[in-house]
Write a protein that binds this DNA or RNA. Structure first.
Lengths: 224, 224
DNA sequence: CGGTGTGTTGAGGCACATCAAGCCAGGTGG
DNA sequence: CCACCTGGCTTGATGTGCCTCAACACACCG
């Protein structure tokens, strides 16, 4: 029961404390899988470049994307015997492979690492709680706005007007936010019509009015 | 950023490894708060008897119950400076108080405790992911069924026909599952009409057909 | 008795899903 | 070069599940 394949985003101020600088790296083509649900959880993966998605599939075809992972994230931080979710690459992706046993050895040798990992895990819980709230209480407009704010913040050049890439398709965004592709599309169009974002091309967006976007994301009822 | 006040449910097979057998206990009347969002997170609390709810409040009045805590659960396992959520008692509740510093000291002395805590934290992440899926992808009927299955399983005497108490009100269930009280009420009534559960009184329910309840919870489309 | 808080039931509306076209860019082959 | 296909995205029309608003039932309590 106690395992997870969530994506951990280290605090930029306290970078991931363990990942060895060396170590094996692996290159994934788009749609290549890092692991499947049920696989033995022997490794973590640090994303050096590219992007991945972690998703759960249901018997009836429904799909929930649990998290996206970008450069600097760690995926597969699952502490049970098996991964809980599938994880595959959105684009060409380079990862560093970290053996679980190696990390555990390091924790035993330096207990402060364990403390740090606990903090990271707690942060992950917090992230998931925020996601629950997002999915539960927010409208489509608020969800998309929240997602775009998060994406823009992650992206280095998140100055207003700068293009932020969206390496995932509309279907992925929908399956992450609990919306259909049509609603994702319509809502993005609506944000553009409100002059809050630009949609210069398919694979990206640009924020025109960050304050307004945050306002929508935070449920301020700017818009009736 | 890295903190959380989620409720941790230890695996019954590997009970919580740290809580000292002795230690201060505290008794809470209904609606008495264990802590508030923003308070300095100096303690954890092991619930010895009773039930609590952990919830996040929004400026616009919306409320999300993040978790319920029952006998044996640990609340306030948050690793930042402050709690992220309010936590208060649903009924008269007895808790054991555990100082954060004490736990951290124990982790430093015995690194295997840290590993165990990491597993618990990972389990908590998994629980939250399941909750996301619940809130995102399931219908009202599926949500209520999932909730009732979980409640029946927690309760010792969960044999078919046995009453399981529901110490929280309809509003709490609604704020946990992302539904209104009316929908909660209607959906429970519907499950009774389907002869899957009984509703002998306000504060409890009994499962008449566990297989059917699980079927509904697992999105099997028994009911068009 | 009325007052209050909680739960149930009913009528109607709205946000998002569903179903269905159509658009556009990229690729392929003649 | 154009004709054609394909996959992802957008846009429109309609349906529906849950929310909203409203009334009522019931227990508890002064």
């Amino acid at each position: 029961m106690y395992h997870s394949a969530a994506i951990m985003t280290p605090d930029p101020q306290h970078p991931w404390p363990v990942a060895p600088a060396g170590g094996e790296t692996r290159v994934l083509r788009p749609h290549a899988h890092l692991f499947y649900a049920g696989d033995e959880a022997t490794h973590f993966f640090e994303i050096l470049q590219g992007a991945v998605r972690s998703c759960k599939l249901f018997a009836d075809g429904r799909r929930q994307i649990v998290a996206f992972g970008f450069t600097g994230d760690i995926v597969g931080f699952g502490h049970g015997e098996t991964y809980r979710f599938d994880c595959d690459a959105l684009a060409e992706t380079r990862v560093r492979v970290i053996a679980r046993s190696e990390l555990m050895r390091a924790v035993r040798a330096r207990p402060e690492l364990g403390e740090r990992l606990l903090e990271i895990a707690a942060g992950e819980v917090a992230t998931m709680q925020d996601l629950s709230i997002l999915l539960c209480r927010k409208t489509a407009l608020e969800r998309i706005a929240t997602f775009l704010v998060a994406m823009a913040e992650r992206h280095r050049g998140n100055a207003v007007g700068t293009r932020t890439p969206l390496p995932m398709g509309r279907a992925d965004i929908g399956d992450f936010l609990g919306l259909t592709i049509e609603t994702v599309s319509r809502t993005m169009t609506r944000l553009r019509a409100l002059r809050i974002i630009d949609l210069p091309d398919r694979g990206g967006f640009a924020v025109r009015d960050m304050a307004a976007l945050r306002g929508v994301a935070e449920c301020e009822e700017y818009l009736h």
